[in-house]
């Protein structure tokens, strides 16, 4: 069961077996396909439009 802004919908979490109640997931065609890392989200928000180019993980 996912909750987005007060809307609740049942989705399959078979593809993200590690998901726990309270986690944020990314949903695609009725399936959770990935998880959101809250720390990384904060870091990305902080980097938006910053002067330095020290962004992302260079793979």
């Amino acid at each position: 069961m996912v909750n987005l802004g007060g809307i609740r919908k049942e989705v399959s979490i078979e593809l993200v077996p590690e998901a726990q109640v309270g986690d944020y997931v990314i949903v695609h065609v009725g399936h959770a396909i990935g998880m959101i890392d809250p720390d990384e989200a904060e870091r990305t928000l902080a980097l938006f439009g910053e002067m330095s180019a020290a962004t992302g993980v260079s793979a």
Partner: peptide
């Protein structure tokens, strides 16, 4: 010419292994 990742909140190098 590198691969950079702006979407680190959801994407890592290996992806969703279960999927």
């Amino acid at each position: 010419a590198h691969v950079e990742n702006e979407f680190t909140r959801a994407v890592d190098r290996d992806g969703n292994l279960a999927a």
